[in-house]
Nucleic acid binder design. Structure first.
Lengths: 194, 194
DNA sequence: AATGTTTTGTACTAAATGGTAAAGAACATA
DNA sequence: TATGTTCTTTACCATTTAGTACAAAACATT
């Protein structure tokens, strides 16, 4: 019932594939590239991911979201000031290593690349970003209730604006890979939270 | 001195290639796709564009920028109210046909896809977006001088913020392909111009 | 009509790519 | 040790793709 043992862990190789997809995008990444990065052979790969590259990409999106969202939710829950949580979220662009943040937003990249070639994958990425918007929304409603946010505009609209700002920074930070400029820009965007 | 006549015009076929690149992105578009769209054969193609797909893409970026920027500069010059020009620029997202605007910002897409695989092409797209930022900057300084803009913050920072908002909308409009939602979002972003 | 020039069309090559198939390796259980 | 099961490895195939080469076509000039 239990044959030859697997030499790899699914979630682990999905994580390794993430880096490639994030840096090169979906189309520019070949299955052979992925195999090399994951350290497994074709046979194992197509057995574990019968849908090939596409199925792998879906799982990469899923895992990425899982990791990012659960961590952020914990951070928000642990935070005394939901507004400060949002600020830190945006400021992480300039505090995180350049190598990472220069790749932009993984989901934003996916939408940009795939919205006209693979609607299914694009929609998956879009839904994950909606979860981020929801997180903003949660933080804002809490803050308004606690009197930690003067701005009394519709939290749904505010959250959506934050998401769009986030999407923008995913592109702009590659036009201006300069922490000074980005910081100034981010603080400008964050004025909406005053 | 003048051999067999060309059956196509360079700028014209560059225009035809634009649509494909814009919709599918760089990697997902094969040279054969392009040949079909441009309506020419391999021989002609590689004679006119010795650098192949990459050279064609560069020229597509260039032509796109040329068209968009010159048109916008004229619009700004013809406008009595520079702020209204900017507003219209953003509102064009909801007024233009869905088929077009759902492809997002061509330059933004290029940056998202190519920033880690082809720095040269990415930088070209980035520079074109900087020209757009310059246009915003021009409009803002004129408006401030004319007293048409109460907001007295640094026009350079305002222009950069507008650019980033634009980049964001290029992604967000595909997450929310709904004119009501987009309109609300755009008006929110434009409050910076009050 | 002959010549020179530029473009076109097609045939071809070489490499990359996605995916399948089958043999055997590594386990658990009986 | 024999058997059944699952995973791995490698070989293989078919297709797509980028790019080149070359003969012929379509002009202008002489």
């Amino acid at each position: 019932m239990s044959g030859r043992p697997k030499i790899f862990d699914d979630q682990e190789v999905i994580g390794k594939a993430t880096e490639l997809f994030w840096r090169q995008g979906y189309e520019a990444t070949s299955t052979e590239d992925l195999l090399a990065a994951m350290g497994i052979g074709k046979g194992s790969f197509y057995l574990a991911f019968k849908g090939g590259k596409k199925e792998l990409y879906e799982k990469v999106l899923e895992q990425f979201n899982e990791k990012a969202i659960t961590r952020s939710k914990k951070e928000l829950a642990a935070s005394k000031d939901p507004i400060e949580f949002i600020r830190n979220f945006f400021r992480s662009i300039v505090t995180s290593p350049k190598k990472i943040h220069q790749k932009g937003c993984f989901f934003g990249n996916a939408i940009a690349e795939l919205s006209n070639t693979d609607i299914l994958l694009m929609r998956k990425a879009a839904n994950h970003l909606k979860e981020l918007e929801e997180l903003f929304h949660d933080a804002l409603t809490i803050a308004q209730k606690n009197g930690q946010l003067k701005n009394q505009q519709d939290p749904a609209l505010l959250a959506r604006t934050l998401l769009s700002n986030w999407n923008g920074l995913g592109i702009t930070r590659r036009i201006y890979p300069d922490n000074e400029i980005l910081s100034e820009l981010i603080e400008m965007q964050l004025k909406i939270l005053e």
